[in-house]
Design a protein around this nucleic acid. Structure first.
Lengths: 354, 354
DNA sequence: ATAACTATTGCATACGCATGCAAAAAGCAG
DNA sequence: CTGCTTTTTGCATGCGTATGCAATAGTTAT
């Protein structure tokens, strides 16, 4: 005869209370850190809870406390290992304070709005955006609802959105300096998407340095932050009459695509024939298959600052948006020729211009 | 004078009700698909809701309906792009039915228990495990709570856990056949972790074919599914007196490490000096930097089946665990020598033995 | 026009937990 | 032992939504 284990409902505080001979509120207090319960009572309750396998219902708790301990993460481009790291870091760092991620992947290019509206309905405590964007309306809605938004690695004109980013301008300048001092003459920039201000800042730093060094022509193509689009961009770049010998990519992932196309399709040797530099310093950049020289953008630190901001915004909801820049550095590997006379990494912006 | 936008509480059904001149329950019904409301009333309500920006509180709804539409995903090894794909696929496919992922990353090697206990507290509708494991106690707890568990790409003896996996045995056999027919003599297998049954199945298929073909020695090392450990494993393999010329890796990600070590540290040419084959067919495997021959394991299909199972288990909670295998195929690229006489991919297991 | 239904609606309560408030208990000083 | 302060407890209610049940309005048949 088959024994049918009934799926009995999970025990509640009332069940524990009955068993421990106290009131439901006593049980609630026993599970609330700062609450007023006699030590003996608490232990009696915890013991009773243990014995029937009671676990607090966090949804109910969230409803009562108006704090869900859930953070919405809207993320696009999860194929890019940089964002995979962001997810991992955010998840682990949030877990330290008992919070968790409700995940919303935003199909490429699309705005995150429909997904995020649902996020708000879930009463998330905050909203982190990485490689995806919210509309103005949605932003206002969050503000009205008192849900702080933090963007990682995105810049928007919208006020009221906090942002954490890497050293984009400096990344472009340093990379330009590095390539210039290595003796390159023909430069190209593989941008992200057209409206990515992060990409624009990198480009700006790159061009600013080169122009003041006397380089006029700097070709720009768009890789849309994807492997495929970057491959196409690389093809157009390399098949031109006068192809570049130094390419700066707005992300490591796109740099991989460029290297692939350059070596496989154009038979070029990296870095002998062409130098390629990226941004992010994803783990793969260190793999010898790519051995990519890159400007780092530490996911762990970005996330740490993002959480800081969230905590501050929650503590003081009236507060203005916070913006924060996280330092990176040039990681010299083998995908780009090195300047002969050495290269100082952590140096004031102006110095290399002399 | 600064105007202080008060963070006013979000409107509720009662607010909408008052405005529309109906009862709260009417509002609730207006937002419940199958419910009984007059068309005119519903529209009046929807209009009122619209005008004050009402959004249902999904936590409250979940509490009342005992269905959260939240699926817990416990995932380890997010560095491995295969699992990044699993996350993405699961998130997108769940979103189609209005469900979302509550994410639990499990630090490497650790069991997922502490995290998952919290998951249960969040009243998740189901639990998906990828590259992480639950203890027996935890499993029982889920069963008692009526929360279905689906493992992706993991095999456990525990009864009651549903599982979805790729063709592991066949992967091993096909890869072995491919390498054998290409004329290799010295084989090695880079396993995942010691207790990964998936890795064992692949190994088993690999060895079964080779042994029946007369190959006795097949060296096995452990790469623990990480890039670093696989690199070390590769070093030990290649620095032996009589190193292998054909290496099968239990994952693409480890195969990348092997290729890196072989080419950079040992100066070997792939596939001239050594053939390397992986499993998964992650996007990177197609990049020309690796150009990896591999047995595919389609993340999209695995996830699709996992969701199917979840739905079935939820519909009929008494049901026994479901196990499901998803077909893959050998993707021939450039990291392994090819058999001269061609190679038929989709073929009955036995044929190549002749 | 009246009876017999059916489609809508509101009332009341439940979901599981947190918390202000007042009652009860315990501790303390005199 | 009495009066007062400090803990500890329980009661009652609220968080926002869903839903069984009974009441009401609306429809159709006779």
């Amino acid at each position: 005869m088959i024994k049918k284990e009934k799926t009995r409902r999970a025990p509640t505080e009332s069940d524990v209370a009955k068993l421990a001979g106290v009131s439901q509120s006593a049980v609630s207090r026993a599970f609330t850190p700062g609450a007023s319960v006699a030590k003996a009572t608490r232990e009696k309750i915890l013991h009773a809870a243990q014995s029937i396998g009671y676990q607090p219902n966090l949804l109910a708790r969230s409803l009562a406390t108006r704090r869900s301990n859930i953070i919405a993460l809207a993320i696009g481009n999860l194929e890019n290992p940089f964002y995979a790291m962001v997810v991992k870091e955010l998840s682990e760092q949030l877990a330290e304070t008992g919070r968790h991620i409700l995940l919303f992947t935003t199909p490429k290019g699309d705005e995150a709005d429909p997904a995020l509206e649902r996020a708000l309905s879930y009463q998330v405590d905050a909203l982190v955006m990485a490689a995806s964007m919210a509309s103005i309306e949605l932003t206002m809605q969050c503000q009205k609802a008192g849900v702080p938004i933090v963007q990682i690695n995105r810049e928007t004109k919208l006020p009221g959105i906090s942002t954490v980013w890497g050293e984009n301008q400096r990344a472009g300048e340093l990379v330009a300096a590095f390539l210039y001092k290595a003796g390159h003459k023909k430069y190209a920039f593989v941008a992200g998407t057209k409206n990515s201000s992060i990409s624009q800042m990198r480009q700006n730093g790159f061009e600013t340095y080169l122009k003041s060094a006397g380089i006029k022509k700097i070709k720009t193509v768009y890789g849309d932050y994807t492997f495929e689009a970057a491959s196409i961009a690389a093809r157009s770049l390399l098949s031109a009459k006068n192809p570049p010998d130094a390419i700066f990519c707005a992300s490591d992932y796109m740099a991989f695509a460029v290297i692939d196309v350059a070596t496989r399709e154009f038979g070029l040797n990296v870095p002998k024939d062409i130098s390629v530099i990226g941004v992010d310093n994803v783990p793969e950049a260190g793999h010898s298959a790519y051995d990519l020289t890159t400007f780092s953008q530490p996911a762990g630190s970005l996330v740490e600052e993002a959480i800081n901001i969230i905590d501050k915004m929650i503590a003081d909801p009236g507060r203005r948006a916070i913006r924060c820049e996280v330092a990176g550095e040039l990681i010299v590997r083998g995908s780009a020729k090195e300047p002969k006379d050495g290269f100082i990494n952590n140096v004031d912006n102006k110095i290399w211009l002399e």
